[in-house]
């Protein structure tokens, strides 16, 4: 009978101490969210508990300890996978105008898209490179720690209803073709063309726990670090600085800044508004 009692959401919310739950996730599974901004994590934990009908925090802890699938789902839920093709069109426009000319000077181009989620922005990059005649000498390393999202990215299948907005973004970003040349439409979905996928390497990489894996000319990491606290932001910025060649380019989300990190004076601002930085020589 006790199970039928409605959950006291107020009490439930009061009980949640994110640090405690994140410690268990880390100790037991190695998923490290301990340096994420707390307000966001608390919201996600609370929502997960409500959706799973979990009555109190001790039940939540038990579930995480004893149910590996539940823990994996929770881990996926704490990582935000929301993204768009050509998200922030003005950024892609600036990329085309300010960064492509620099990339053109390299005989081969290595790009790291860190936190690529379900792949939309990696495909956007591939399209841009194609239109600028650079795709064939480029490799895009698209990484994420969320394997579900990565699998989705690899498939490159997206629901039809999103395409209208993506097309608008593409046009605002200075696209040179008709956006529909890049996908085939079928059964309410679109699938991105194989020719875009050939030079994308999808790989599982965790910014929090893994280290440098390649020397690259361009890093895109957009709307990933907004979830990190200052220490973790600094740590990841160091990782990027190490990975970039001298004169390499770093692109952050339009609301993310290098300003308050230790590495601010290591870069020049290529486009202040769009948060595009160039590593000093």
């Amino acid at each position: 009978m006790n199970n039928r009692k409605p959950i006291d959401t107020h009490q439930l919310h009061l009980q949640i101490n994110p640090a405690e739950i994140l410690d268990i996730l880390y100790q037991k599974y190695g998923y490290d969210f301990r340096q994420y901004s707390e307000a966001h994590i608390k919201r996600r934990l609370y929502n997960r508990m409500l959706m799973s009908g979990i009555k109190d925090v001790s039940q939540m802890k038990g579930r995480i300890m004893n149910d590996e699938l539940f823990a994996a789902d929770l881990m996926h839920e704490l990582s935000i996978t929301v993204t768009e093709m050509f998200r922030d069109p003005k950024f892609y426009k600036s990329l085309r105008e300010n960064v492509i000319p620099i990339l053109k000077t390299y005989p081969f181009i290595k790009i790291w898209h860190a936190g690529c989620s379900t792949g939309e922005e990696a495909y956007s990059m591939a399209i841009l490179l194609k239109e600028e005649g650079l795709y064939d000498r480029s490799t895009i390393y698209a990484t994420d720690f969320n394997q579900q999202a990565l699998n989705h990215a690899k498939e490159g299948i997206y629901p039809n209803e999103l395409i209208k907005e993506y097309t608008t973004n593409y046009q605002l970003a200075g696209g040179k073709e008709s956006f529909s040349t890049y996908y085939s439409s079928n059964y309410g979905h679109v699938i991105m063309h194989q020719s875009l996928k050939n030079n994308i390497v999808w790989a599982n990489h965790n910014l929090v726990t893994d280290s440098v894996f390649a020397e690259v000319h361009l890093i895109l990491c957009r709307n990933v670090m907004i979830y990190f606290d200052k220490n973790l932001q600094n740590k990841v910025q160091n990782l990027f600085h190490e990975s970039l060649v001298k004169g390499g380019i770093l692109c952050l989300g339009t609301k993310e800044s290098l300003r308050f990190t230790d590495l601010y004076d290591q870069y020049l601002e290529l486009d202040k508004t769009q948060r595009i930085y160039k590593k000093k020589y």
Partner: peptide
């Protein structure tokens, strides 16, 4: 837009809530 316990701002691009991003509920609850 969210407010942290140390009374600083943080952002998320989570799903829209009540068809909205930014959502009032997200700000108010934090």
């Amino acid at each position: 837009l969210l407010i942290e316990k140390d009374r600083t701002f943080s952002f998320t691009i989570d799903e829209k809530i009540n068809f909205a991003r930014p959502s009032i509920d997200v700000l108010f609850e934090s």
